[in-house]
Every structure is written in structure tokens, then in C-alpha cells.
């Protein structure tokens, strides 16, 4: 395994290896270590203070709020309801609708995105004229703000005056009411996500590809493998940990999908289409908290989203570890 892929795997599986032996050390030594390392602790303290204030505290506070029935203008008040919000959420068809949409938009956006990124990275790995230019160009969408990109795409996908429908009509096809259909609207949103993130993932793949030793390709070439077979049997297996990493990151992004469906509606509504056909979990949370002002419900949805992400990351870690064991 190459160094780059090794480190991504370790980052992924994130098992704390080093602290284990510390436990067995005698307390006196530990105290000495503590005082010896006090500058080290001082240096990391700012991060943990900021982390505590802006991540840990909101995190715990959200959990606390999720156990209350309360409104946005009275967050600290409200009545204690225990796990009732969670029960209601699981029984709410709005939650399951949003979960379904998040899943389908997630698949529609992530799968083509990562495939295209892999192909792009492969192409850019060749010695091309103006390679730096293409690499920079590829990252441009990532540097665009979600709001700007979505507003432009929403106009492109417009029903009456959108460029895409004008083009469809010009070649003799029917106009599509992108926003009102279930699949068409989810497809349109997936296009925005894909447009924005493909270059970013391609760059990660490209970095990993460049650390694949050239000998592997030489050996494959001697064995008479075509470019395509080299891609399939040398590049992809070497990238496996990186691919797993990008899948995890994209999945987290997909679960949190919010800005695109909110702005795609074009008039600030948070219902995610006339029949909620593209309401995602993130948008549902926003609707509950900031349109309907039930902040307890919103906190519950936020925690449900967190659980889903934990599940996905945990699954990826298990798969990563199983693969690593199989490789050994």
C-alpha cells in the first residue's frame, strides 16, 4: 500500500492506538508526563475551547432541546416531554418522505458524481497540454457558493422561461415541468450537487493516483493489459481506501443536503415542492424550526440526522476494516 492511501485508511478507521499503553503506566510517571507536556496541552487548548463552545455545547444543548416542546422565541422555556418528539418523528410521514427523498437524491447525486470524478481524474493523470488549467477549471464549481449556483440552475430548469426547456423545445421534445415532478425535481437537484462536487472529488482521486507507483503500470503493460484494464485492475484497487473516504464524505454531504432544495423552490417555501417531492431531512428540520417555529421538533430531526450519519460512518469503518483484514 502507498503512503497516501495508508494514511487515509487510518484517518477513516480512526482507532485510537497510542493511548492504550498509557493506562498501565504508574501514576507518578503519568503526572510527570503531564507537567512535561503542559506546553503541548496549552497549544491544543484553543482548539478544544472553540470546539467546546461552538460544537460540543450546541450538540448537547440540541439534545436537551429535543426533549422539550418549545418554540423558537422561547427556547429555554417549553415543557419537558421526554422522548415524545422522537416517537412523533418516527410516526410522521413527513419524516419518512424526507428520509426517502434524501436517500434517492443522495444516490442520484453521489453515484454519477463519484464515477465521473474517477474518470476525470484518470484523464487528468495523463500528460496533457494545459493540465494545470484543466485542474484549476475542475475545481471552479467547488469555489462557487451554493446559493449562486442553485439560483442559476433553478432558472435553467425553469418551466416557462428556462434555458433547458427552450433547448428541449428547439429539438422537438416536450417541455418538462422540472420543479413539480418527483423524479425530474430530484434529478435537477442532483445535477446541481454533482456539478459542484465532481471536481473536488476528482482532485482527491488525482492526488491518490499520483502516489500509485509507476512500476505497477509498467508491469501491467508488460503483461499486455490495455489502458482500460490498467484502470480497472491497477488504479481502482489502489484507490479503494480513497474511494471509501469520498463515499463517506459525499454521503455525509447528502444526508445534510439543504441549500439546494431550499433555493430550488425559488420563492422561499420550505415544503420542498407542492407535494414535498424534494424535501430533504435538512429542509424538514429547517421547516420545523424556522418556518413553523417548533424548535424542539427541529432539534429531534437534527439528532436523527446525526444518528444516520453515525450509522453510515460506522458502516464504512467496518467495511474498511474487513477489507484491510482480507488484504493482509
Amino acid at each position: 500500500m502507498t503512503i497516501a492511501s495508508q494514511s487515509t485508511r487510518e484517518a477513516l478507521v480512526a482507532v485510537p492506538v497510542s493511548p492504550a499503553p498509557t493506562a498501565q503506566r504508574p501514576p507518578a510517571r503519568r503526572r510527570r508526563r503531564l507537567s512535561q507536556n503542559r506546553w503541548g496541552y496549552a497549544y491544543v487548548a484553543p482548539f478544544f475551547l472553540v470546539f467546546g463552545a461552538f460544537s460540543l455545547y450546541p450538540f448537547v444543548y440540541t439534545a436537551w432541546v429535543s426533549l422539550h416542546r418549545t418554540s423558537l422565541s422561547d427556547i429555554d422555556g417549553g415543557t419537558w416531554v421526554g422522548l415524545e418528539n422522537y416517537r412523533d418523528l418516527l410516526q410522521s410521514e413527513f419524516f419518512w418522505n424526507a428520509a426517502r427523498n434524501t436517500l434517492t437524491i443522495g444516490i442520484l447525486a453521489t453515484v454519477p458524481q463519484l464515477c465521473m470524478a474517477l474518470g476525470l481524474a484518470h484523464l487528468l493523470n495523463y500528460k496533457l497540454r494545459g493540465r494545470t488549467f484543466f485542474r484549476t477549471l475542475m475545481l471552479m464549481p467547488y469555489a462557487t457558493s451554493i446559493a449562486a449556483a442553485t439560483l442559476v440552475f433553478a432558472q435553467l430548469f425553469g418551466r416557462d422561461y428556462g434555458l433547458i426547456n427552450t433547448a428541449l423545445e428547439a429539438v422537438g421534445l416536450e417541455r418538462i415541468d422540472w420543479e413539480s415532478g418527483t423524479w425530474s425535481s430530484q434529478f435537477a437537484i442532483a445535477v446541481i450537487v454533482t456539478w459542484r462536487w465532481t471536481g473536488y472529488n476528482a482532485l482527491i482521486y488525482l492526488a491518490a493516483m499520483q502516489s500509485i507507483p509507476g512500476e505497477l503500470y509498467e508491469a501491467a503493460e508488460i503483461d499486455g493489459a490495455s489502458r482500460w484494464r490498467q484502470f480497472l485492475h491497477v488504479t481502482v484497487p489502489s484507490l479503494r481506501p480513497t474511494i471509501l473516504f469520498t463515499i463517506v464524505v459525499s454521503t455525509i454531504g447528502a444526508v445534510q443536503l439543504f441549500g439546494e432544495p431550499l433555493l430550488f423552490a425559488g420563492n422561499g417555501t420550505t415544503s420542498g415542492g407542492s407535494s414535498g417531492q424534494y424535501q430533504t431531512l435538512g429542509l424538514l428540520m429547517y421547516q420545523q424550526g424556522w418556518s413553523n417555529f417548533h424548535i424542539g421538533q427541529a432539534a429531534t430531526t437534527a439528532w436523527a440526522m446525526f444518528m444516520i450519519i453515525l450509522l453510515v460512518v460506522g458502516l464504512a469503518a467496518v467495511i474498511g476494516r474487513l477489507r484491510a483484514r482480507a488484504d493482509r
Binding site: 415532478g181 415544503s271 407542492s274 407535494s275 417548533h294
Partner: peptide
Amino acid sequence: TALTDVASSGTDPDEAFQNALEASQQAIG
């Protein structure tokens, strides 16, 4: 929004009315 649904997807008005009531209920809590 339920009316938009009737106009764009041809949803039955009675069904759309029920959807609207459910969405209202969700908003009211």
C-alpha cells in the same frame, strides 16, 4: 402548495385538501 399540486400533477382536489390539512396540522403542532 396543495393547489399547485392539483394544477401541476392533477392530484384529486379532495386528496389535496387532506394533504393540506395534514401539512397545516404539522405546522400547528
